[in-house]
Design a protein around this nucleic acid. Structure first.
Length: 645
RNA sequence: GCCAAUGUAGCUCAGUUGGCCAGAGCAGCUGAUUUGUAAUCAGCCGGUCGGGGGUUCGAAUCCCUCCAUUGGCUCCA
């Protein structure tokens, strides 16, 4: 007998060799039907693998992320089996489960596949699924594995096998499909009841753009048809929050091919919104001891040679601007830091002045690859809410913490609760990608890790994601479709001060090198506004929204009173307009609702008589009648609450 | 940059296997209507069907090419 410990601490005894499925069965038949995989002593395994010793167990169903992962991983195999059925000779790369479903990278040879082929693949997948194909696990020697895929002619699997140790290789067979795979898998395909292939894309083998591009097919499966339908509805809903769509609807920004790719044009309402965000941050920064500076949009090529950016990005940038003077070249500035370094250098500094914090909403231009452009989130001209802090080495931690506080303040004020703090460090295997000494890198990385540790924040460490001049801490937020975007960023930099030979005079009366911290809490105004739109679906907080209020007179007769209300509101620093079109009230309300104007004030005979307004809140409906002063107090109170979060 | 799909009025979309002057709704304009909590009615304006080339008696529809957009990949100072 063996002892099986459940997550609640309960221990039960079973015969040696019992499976997770049988354990589930001993608890309840329903559970047994739904259990997809299990974690046994830290390893996730199939529900039909025998357990031979005492174990901690947790059973996973569709409700658990682990259960979904098992389902989707098995679904990737099912899709591969189906594709092999329709396209014999197709070669397979990797086919993992992902956050929402799974994909498989496939080399179709000369054959082309398109979304038109999805239907027949989906239908066949369901057909195979209904056959209740079992997943059979087989431990196999490296030699045999190589033999199998050599005969099959799949060089991708062979490459993967090459990197594996003999003795740790397993195959999984389901239906006619055999795959190199670590598992785990579903016991069989019976729980796959709904299938949807989502899209098709090119993906470089092993993520290397110098290698062959395979065809990646994304899909998702569900244990119930109803869940697939709900998923598709959610997807549609998410698309409605797309910032490109709402940006157009609410007239916030636009693009023009004549102006150029990836160069956003801010429309009046968008500009207003952005300016309000900028002012919000400016105020916070003044309180935190930042000083505004302003630098030009271009810089001499020597500036970027000194900073090291020229060597790194010169060829992939907007090309230099020449002048009538032979050999003189300027670059559109791709970042503000070199300029700020020169500002720092404009005079000698004493340790008593540090830290110095230069802030600038600096517009920068980067020649992003055409395929990378994406609405406002990835553009070629954008404005960073940039600042550079020059401080003594022992001030780094405190300054870093100060910046984290600002990021937190902004994210809190705008209800970005769900963000990931990513610490991006150097790729330890490829140090040549980076400039600066090992010693400085180690210092900088250590500083960030310590601050993160002390802050108690949940952080994710990514190796190889650092900037080429230093490690960073990024604040990542997801858009409506779950894509992650980097917003805020804080970067410790020991390299630029070196390159620009920045100095301060210490208390010992000798010269020392300051440390530089780059930081941008929003990241860029463009990207931040984009993500904000997707989070709020265009329903911005009252303090921020371009049009706070709209006055809707019932008919022409009340236009005079509407004017009076407007004056009253304007005098109270509220942004209001009157809709005096000769439309019915229902129509005016509908239009205001769609423009996401937070409050509608309906005025007619009653209101005029009593000096009141009838208040309707966007998305909520009629809120009753208030006097003008009551309403203004109410709204101002709401704004104050928003800003003091 | 790469793979795939898409591109018809300001916006959202119809346009059957190539065949009469390319359609609708919304928006806009004009007029009527004077309206009480999510769409009043009528008329009008608006398109070299992404650009260019080709096949054909005839192309929005078929082919080539360029451009742009979308979804991914790679990249992201």
């Amino acid at each position: 007998m063996i002892n099986i410990t459940f997550p609640d601490g309960n221990v039960r005894q079973y015969e040696e060799g019992i499976t997770a499925h049988e354990i589930a069965m001993s608890l309840s038949e329903g559970l047994a039907r739904n259990v997809l995989s299990a974690r046994v002593n830290g390893h996730i395994i199939e529900t039909n693998r025998p357990i031979n010793s005492d174990a901690q167990i947790k059973l996973f169903t569709w409700r658990d992320d682990e259960g979904k992962a098992t389902m989707w991983h098995s679904s990737a195999h099912l899709m591969a089996e189906t594709i092999e059925h329709f396209y014999p000779g197709a070669k397979f790369g990797i086919g993992p489960d992902i956050e929402n479903g799974f994909y498989y990278d496939i080399d179709f040879g000369d054959r082309a596949i398109s979304e038109n082929d999805f239907k027949k693949i989906e239908d066949k997948m369901l057909e195979f699924a209904r056959e209740n194909q079992t997943f059979i696990r087989e431990e196999i020697s490296k030699a045999e594995a190589i033999k199998y895929f050599t005969e099959k002619g799949d060089e991708y699997k062979l490459e993967l096998i090459e990197e594996l140790e003999d003795g740790e290789i397993t195959f999984y067979k389901s239906g006619s499909f055999v795959d190199l795979c670590r598992g785990p898998h579903l016991p069989d395909t019976s729980s796959i009841k709904a299938v949807k292939l989502l899209n098709i894309a090119g993906a470089y083998w092993r993520g290397d753009e110098n290698r062959k591009q395979l065809t990646r097919i994304y899909g998702i499966t569900f244990p119930k048809k109803k869940e697939l339908d709900e998923f598709l509805v959610r997807l549609e809903e998410a698309k409605k929050r797309d910032h490109r769509r709402i940006g157009k609807e609410l007239e916030l920004f636009t693009f023009s091919q004549k102006v150029g790719l990836g160069l956003p044009l801010w429309l009046p309402k968008g500009a207003q919104l952005r300016e309000r965000l900028e002012n919000f941050l400016k105020k916070v920064q003044v309180e935190a001891g930042y000083e505004p500076v302003i630098s030009p949009h271009i810089g001499n090529v020597n500036l970027y040679k000194t900073s090291g950016h020229y060597d790194k990005y010169g060829e992939d940038s907007f090309q230099p601007i020449s002048t009538p003077i032979e050999g003189e070249q300027f670059f559109l500035k791709p970042m503000n830091c070199p300029h700020h370094c020169e500002i720092y250098k404009s005079k000698p500094h004493s340790y008593k002045e540090l830290p110095i914090r230069y802030a600038e909403f600096g517009t920068v231009y980067r020649y992003e690859q055409s395929g990378e452009l994406h609405g406002l989130t990835r553009v070629r001209g954008f404005t960073q809410d940039d600042a550079h802090i020059f401080c003594m080495p022992d001030q780094v931690k405190d300054e870093f913490k100060g910046v984290m506080k600002i990021v937190d303040k902004i994210f809190t004020a705008l209800d970005f609760e769900d963000y990931i703090v990513q610490i991006s460090l150097r790729d330890p295997d490829d140090k040549q990608k980076y400039i600066g000494s090992d010693e400085n890198w180690e210092k900088a990385e250590k500083a960030i890790l310590e601050v993160a540790e002390e802050s108690g924040m949940n952080t994710v460490i990514e190796y190889g994601e650092a900037a080429f001049y230093g490690p960073k801490m990024d604040f990542m937020v997801k858009d409506a479709l779950g894509r992650k975007w980097q917003l805020g960023t804080i970067q410790v930099d020991y390299n630029l001060p070196e390159r620009f030979e920045l100095e301060y005079i210490g208390s010992d009366n000798s010269k020392h090198r300051p440390v530089m911290i780059h930081r941008a809490p929003f990241g860029s105004m463009e990207r931040f506004v984009a993500v904000l739109i997707e989070h709020t679906a265009g329903k911005f907080p009252l303090w921020l929204t371009p049009e706070q209020l709209i006055i809707l007179p019932i008919s022409e007769k009340y236009e005079k009173y509407a004017e009076k209300v407007l004056n009253f509101l304007n005098n109270s620093d509220l942004r209001a307009q009157i809709d005096n079109r000769s439309e019915k009230t229902g129509k005016k309300i509908r239009d205001a609702e769609m423009k996401r104007i937070p409050y509608m004030l309906i005025v007619g005979e009653k209101e005029e008589l009593d000096n009141t307004v009838s208040v309707r809140k966007q998305g909520e409906g009629d809120k009753g009648v208030l006097s003008l002063q009551e309403f203004v107090d109410f709204v101002n109170n709401e704004i104050e609450k928003e800003l003091s979060k």
